Amino acid sequence: MKRFITLILVNVASLWLIDRVMRTMYIGSANTLFLIAFILVILNATLKPLMKLVFLPLTFFSFGLFSLIINAAVLSIAFSFAHGSYMMGFHTAIIASILLSIVNAAINSYLE
Protein backbone atom coordinates (compact mmCIF):
# COMPACT_ATOMS: atom_id res chain seq x y z
CA MET A 1 0.00 0.00 0.00
CA LYS A 2 2.86 2.35 0.83
CA ARG A 3 4.44 1.74 -2.59
CA PHE A 4 1.10 2.46 -4.29
CA ILE A 5 0.76 5.81 -2.52
CA THR A 6 4.38 6.66 -3.30
CA LEU A 7 3.79 5.94 -6.99
CA ILE A 8 0.72 8.19 -7.00
CA LEU A 9 2.58 11.04 -5.29
CA VAL A 10 5.56 10.74 -7.65
CA ASN A 11 3.17 10.86 -10.62
CA VAL A 12 1.37 13.87 -9.12
CA ALA A 13 4.64 15.77 -8.80
CA SER A 14 5.76 14.77 -12.30
CA LEU A 15 2.45 15.59 -13.95
CA TRP A 16 2.27 18.95 -12.18
CA LEU A 17 5.75 19.86 -13.39
CA ILE A 18 5.04 18.73 -16.94
CA ASP A 19 1.75 20.65 -16.92
CA ARG A 20 3.70 23.79 -16.03
CA VAL A 21 6.24 23.23 -18.82
CA MET A 22 3.98 22.16 -21.68
CA ARG A 23 1.39 24.57 -23.07
CA THR A 24 -0.36 21.84 -25.08
CA MET A 25 -1.38 19.98 -21.94
CA TYR A 26 -3.81 21.24 -19.32
CA ILE A 27 -4.82 19.94 -15.89
CA GLY A 28 -7.59 22.05 -14.38
CA SER A 29 -7.45 21.35 -10.64
CA ALA A 30 -5.65 19.46 -7.92
CA ASN A 31 -8.44 16.87 -7.84
CA THR A 32 -8.00 16.25 -11.54
CA LEU A 33 -4.25 15.97 -11.07
CA PHE A 34 -4.65 13.33 -8.35
CA LEU A 35 -7.26 11.48 -10.42
CA ILE A 36 -4.97 11.33 -13.47
CA ALA A 37 -2.08 10.13 -11.30
CA PHE A 38 -4.28 7.44 -9.70
CA ILE A 39 -5.58 6.24 -13.07
CA LEU A 40 -2.06 6.29 -14.51
CA VAL A 41 -0.75 4.04 -11.72
CA ILE A 42 -3.64 1.61 -12.24
CA LEU A 43 -3.17 1.56 -16.03
CA ASN A 44 0.60 1.13 -15.70
CA ALA A 45 -0.01 -1.92 -13.51
CA THR A 46 -2.73 -3.54 -15.64
CA LEU A 47 -3.06 -2.32 -19.22
CA LYS A 48 0.54 -1.41 -20.02
CA PRO A 49 2.01 -4.92 -19.44
CA LEU A 50 -0.77 -6.40 -21.56
CA MET A 51 -0.08 -3.93 -24.37
CA LYS A 52 3.65 -4.66 -24.17
CA LEU A 53 2.95 -8.36 -24.49
CA VAL A 54 0.59 -7.95 -27.44
CA PHE A 55 2.91 -5.58 -29.29
CA LEU A 56 6.14 -7.38 -28.37
CA PRO A 57 7.06 -8.27 -31.99
CA LEU A 58 6.51 -4.69 -33.13
CA THR A 59 8.54 -3.37 -30.20
CA PHE A 60 11.31 -5.84 -30.99
CA PHE A 61 11.50 -4.89 -34.67
CA SER A 62 11.46 -1.16 -33.87
CA PHE A 63 14.34 -1.64 -31.40
CA GLY A 64 12.10 -0.66 -28.47
CA LEU A 65 10.84 2.60 -29.94
CA PHE A 66 7.27 1.33 -30.10
CA SER A 67 7.25 1.37 -26.29
CA LEU A 68 7.11 5.18 -26.59
CA ILE A 69 3.82 4.78 -28.44
CA ILE A 70 2.52 2.42 -25.73
CA ASN A 71 3.48 4.90 -22.99
CA ALA A 72 1.80 7.75 -24.87
CA ALA A 73 -1.35 5.69 -25.39
CA VAL A 74 -1.56 4.86 -21.67
CA LEU A 75 -1.09 8.53 -20.79
CA SER A 76 -3.78 9.56 -23.28
CA ILE A 77 -6.18 7.02 -21.82
CA ALA A 78 -5.53 8.35 -18.31
CA PHE A 79 -6.26 11.90 -19.49
CA SER A 80 -9.45 10.80 -21.22
CA PHE A 81 -10.89 9.54 -17.91
CA ALA A 82 -10.36 12.85 -16.09
CA HIS A 83 -12.69 15.75 -16.80
CA GLY A 84 -11.04 19.16 -16.68
CA SER A 85 -7.89 18.06 -18.46
CA TYR A 86 -6.80 17.75 -22.06
CA MET A 87 -3.90 17.00 -24.34
CA MET A 88 -3.68 18.55 -27.77
CA GLY A 89 -2.89 15.63 -30.06
CA PHE A 90 -1.00 12.40 -29.81
CA HIS A 91 2.36 14.11 -30.38
CA THR A 92 1.80 15.93 -27.08
CA ALA A 93 1.22 12.58 -25.39
CA ILE A 94 4.49 11.25 -26.81
CA ILE A 95 6.48 14.25 -25.59
CA ALA A 96 4.69 14.22 -22.22
CA SER A 97 5.36 10.50 -21.76
CA ILE A 98 9.07 11.02 -22.44
CA LEU A 99 9.19 13.90 -19.96
CA LEU A 100 7.15 11.89 -17.45
CA SER A 101 9.66 9.04 -17.64
CA ILE A 102 12.60 11.39 -17.11
CA VAL A 103 10.99 13.29 -14.22
CA ASN A 104 9.74 10.08 -12.55
CA ALA A 105 13.22 8.57 -12.75
CA ALA A 106 14.76 11.72 -11.24
CA ILE A 107 12.25 11.84 -8.38
CA ASN A 108 12.57 8.10 -7.68
CA SER A 109 16.36 8.32 -7.60
CA TYR A 110 16.11 11.22 -5.16
CA LEU A 111 13.73 9.26 -2.91
CA GLU A 112 15.99 6.20 -2.77
Rank of each mutant, 00 (worst) to 15 (best):
S62V: 04
F81P: 02
Y26M: 10
F55G: 04
R3M: 04
H91S: 07
I70E: 05
N108F: 01
K48L: 14
I98Q: 05
A96D: 01
L7N: 14
L35T: 14
Y86G: 06
I18V: 12
I77A: 14
S76C: 06
I27K: 07
A78C: 06
L75N: 02
V54W: 13
P57K: 10
L75E: 02
I42N: 05
N11K: 10
H91L: 09
N11H: 12
I102H: 05
G28Y: 10
T92E: 06
S67P: 00
M88D: 10
K2I: 11
Y110S: 11
F55I: 04
S85G: 09
Y26P: 02
I77W: 07
S109F: 07
F81N: 09
T24K: 15
A45M: 13
L9N: 03
S29A: 08
I77N: 05
L100R: 06
R20D: 04
L100T: 04
A30W: 15
A82F: 02
G64Q: 08
A93F: 02
A93K: 08
A30M: 14
S76K: 14
T6S: 11
F63E: 04
I107S: 06
L9R: 02
I5N: 08
V12F: 06
L50V: 13
V54D: 08
I94R: 09
M22L: 15
I70P: 03
P49A: 15
Y86C: 06
D19I: 08
Y110N: 07
F60G: 05
A106P: 01
G28N: 15
G28D: 14
M1G: 05
L68E: 07
K48V: 04
A45N: 13
A72W: 01
I18T: 10
L47S: 12
S97W: 02
N71Q: 03
S109T: 06
T6D: 09
G89Q: 05
